[in-house]
Design a protein around this nucleic acid. Structure first.
Lengths: 200, 200
DNA sequence: ATTAAAACATACAGTCTGCATGTTTCTGTG
DNA sequence: CACAGAAACATGCAGACTGTATGTTTTAAT
């Protein structure tokens, strides 16, 4: 029955199966959300069986975590690509934020990363993922600005990073549901410039 | 069989049943979260049957929405209670925020209102609830400060309200998971004072 | 009193998740 | 290259849950 089936190493089999599962799951999670996506649909789209899914992932949540990780990495990559070497610190922050909003404008990403993610994995679980990807560059940007003397030196870096990240996330959500994108961009810029103004 | 059953009006029957359902659901949603709470458990705790539940609520989501509404109202009440009449605008904002964080420190409230809420009802659905309660006073506070000349006049009120609310929410979540509360309070104050500094 | 309607209870159908148990494909060793 | 043994995958099953359809009781209205 396995006529032209070229022989594949176990590692190859696993990796492709995992990849095809994550891809199919990502598509459905983005289209319908976590709760409305059933594992039978995922495996059907992936062309495998539920046995394979539960062989590679502990449960549905673990598969979701893998998808969220991949998506967060993609968003981080798109974001960092927008920050060029020559930029001034403040400019880098603004441009990076801009790119972050653009990356999250991809349909379904806000639901996956900002709504389902925290609910399914918990805020702590989502923080772990974010800290491996997106938040890193934001925190880096803030540190950069502080060092350049553009932000107060007594600023609690970690906390402020979280708050600004959260503001950007909310802006992305609001924009997606029809909010005034320019108003949110302006408000974000004012938050950053306001911090800078504290240096006076 | 209904020996000493005093006769109750239909309205009374409905209202008490709805109330007892919402109370039981709130307790369980707060303890275990939305997804891990089954309707059989809710009705058992409430002392009714699933028939009653589905008579009064369209589905589990609708019951959750009612719970979230009640909880948001409670948080708003606690928050507004902390803002006294004589306060200066900035002080009112800070104190109100403080009270908001304290209200959200009640166990399970962050999960209910900040994690499950947006995931189950969507950000838009949660906004509707928030706009009926908590966000109103925050927006009012911001308008207040702007009018007092303490914030830039070209500030996009609606967007900034959302961003600051989001920052407070994230602070509440971070504090609950062991974050440095003082750092977050300081960071929030810096965001507000930074905006004020833009008036220079 | 009697009939309608609202409130509530019971029963059922369909679906989903996670696991236990097969079967196939690869890996390592003599 | 034969042949265990393990890894990868498939199939089948048990328990649980949601939403609805249908029954029963309590209130309302004439």
């Amino acid at each position: 029955m396995q006529d032209k089936n070229e022989r594949r190493t176990n590692r190859e089999r696993s990796e492709t199966t995992r990849a095809v599962l994550i891809d199919a799951a990502r598509k459905l999670f983005i289209e319908r959300g976590y709760a409305e996506t059933a594992t039978p649909d995922i495996v059907a789209a992936a062309g495998v069986t539920r046995g394979a899914l539960y062989h590679h992932f502990e449960d549905k949540k673990a598969l979701f975590a893998a998808v969220a990780e991949a998506e967060a990495e993609a968003v981080a990559a798109e974001t960092e690509g927008a920050v060029l070497d020559g930029m001034r610190p403040r400019e880098a922050l603004i441009k990076g934020g801009e790119a972050y909003l653009a990356a999250l404008a991809q349909p379904g990403r806000t639901r996956l990363l900002l709504l389902d993610g925290p609910a399914v994995l918990g805020r702590a679980g989502m923080d772990e993922i974010d800290n491996r990807h997106g938040t890193r560059s934001l925190r880096g940007g803030i540190v950069f600005v502080v060092q350049a003397g553009g932000l107060p030196r007594d600023l609690p870096i970690e906390a402020m990073t979280q708050l600004l990240a959260s503001a950007y996330d909310r802006a992305a959500l609001a924009i997606e549901t029809g909010g005034d994108a320019d108003a949110y961009r302006a408000a974000l810029a004012m938050l950053i410039d306001g911090l800078a103004a504290l240096c006076g």
